[in-house]
């Protein structure tokens, strides 16, 4: 035996593919998600049992327990609908209904999505602009920054009804009032993140730009902006989620007739729990997709800038 193979023998054994697969986070996520669904089914039985007993007593039906469990999972207006009921409702209102119908989730989702996107774009641009100002004008840093922070202590979601009523009084109706709320929610993370990002170049790099006799604009465009981009995409992920919440809440309290928020509200008025959960799932899906898209765009931009995939 040579010395080389001896050393090789000390290297840790690579586990086989099955073990590696079972240890991967994909499996872990799947197991946790399955556990959540299982808990949900049990919870549905527990929460709907009282109503089911009551209904059975009135109808004079006696059930054995598998039948009883099945019944609690298929109530018309359950306290907690079972996952498959929600999935069915989402499927029915997405694919079996034309997208222009009032019952279609696509229709309501699109209305929410459009104001989310408008608010998100305006908010992001506003946030970037404010951050550039704050970084370049020293007096604004001291006077404006504390007010940007404290502007977020005003619970805009809580005053969404007032914003919408007031804007309606001026004649602004439809998409824009909701977009205003989304803007207000999404500009803040972008401002804070971009201020941090535009300040992230090291003093040495800034000094280098000075030795090149670079103008303010050149320093900004060639040094500050590229080094702020990672911060921008992280805060844009937060901002797009916040914009969606803003749009949904903007639809809730004003008697809006369309949008996911309006679906939630009408569902709660008429006790249509399945409808509420379906709208919630649509919103959750939309949030996940939006955040995913922002992340993807970020990845593409970084690759274009020459970052190596981690």
């Amino acid at each position: 035996m040579t010395a080389g193979t001896e050393i090789f023998a000390y290297a840790p054994k690579r586990p086989n593919i099955l073990v590696r697969f079972l240890n991967s986070s994909f499996v872990a996520i799947l197991v946790v998600a399955a556990a959540i669904v299982a808990i949900w089914y049990v919870g549905a039985v527990a929460l709907n049992a009282t109503a089911q007993n009551f209904a059975d007593e009135r109808a004079g039906v006696t059930r054995d327990w598998p039948d009883f469990v099945k019944a609690t999972w298929s109530q018309d207006k359950p306290r907690l609908p079972a996952p498959h009921q929600v999935a069915e409702e989402v499927y029915n209102t997405t694919f079996l209904v034309p997208p222009t119908a009032k019952r279609s989730l696509v229709y309501h989702g699109w209305i929410t999505l459009s104001s989310t996107l408008v608010g998100f774009v305006i908010g992001t641009l506003l946030g970037i602009g404010l951050a550039i100002l704050i970084v370049h004008v020293p007096s604004l840093d001291r006077s404006l920054m504390p007010w940007i922070v404290s502007s977020q202590t005003i619970p805009i979601l809580a005053i969404a009804p007032m914003v919408i009523v007031v804007l309606a009084a001026v004649g602004v109706v439809g998409l824009l009032p909701k977009a205003v709320i989304s803007t207000y929610l999404s500009f803040f993370p972008v401002t804070v993140g971009m201020v941090k990002g535009l300040r992230s170049p090291e003093p040495m790099h800034l000094d280098l730009m000075r030795t090149y006799n670079a103008s303010r604009w050149q320093t900004f465009w060639k040094l500050r902006w590229p080094s702020a981009l990672p911060f921008l995409f992280v805060s844009m992920k937060v901002a797009v989620a916040a914009a969606l919440v803003g749009a949904i809440v903007g639809e809730m309290p004003t008697g809006a007739v369309a949008g996911l928020g309006a679906r939630l509200l009408t569902g709660s008025y008429y006790g249509q729990t399945i409808q509420i959960w379906a709208a919630l799932f649509a919103a959750a899906l939309m949030a996940a997709v939006l955040v995913g898209i922002v992340g993807l765009v970020g990845r593409l931009v970084f690759r274009h800038m020459g970052a190596r995939p981690a």
């Binding site: 979601l157 992920k237 989620a241 809440v249 509200l265 709660s268 006790g271 509420i276 919103a283």
Partner: peptide, 15 residues
Amino acid sequence: SALPIIGIAPIMVMW
């Protein structure tokens, strides 16, 4: 934490 959790408000009021 990115989801619009606020939407569960009507459900909680029911419960």
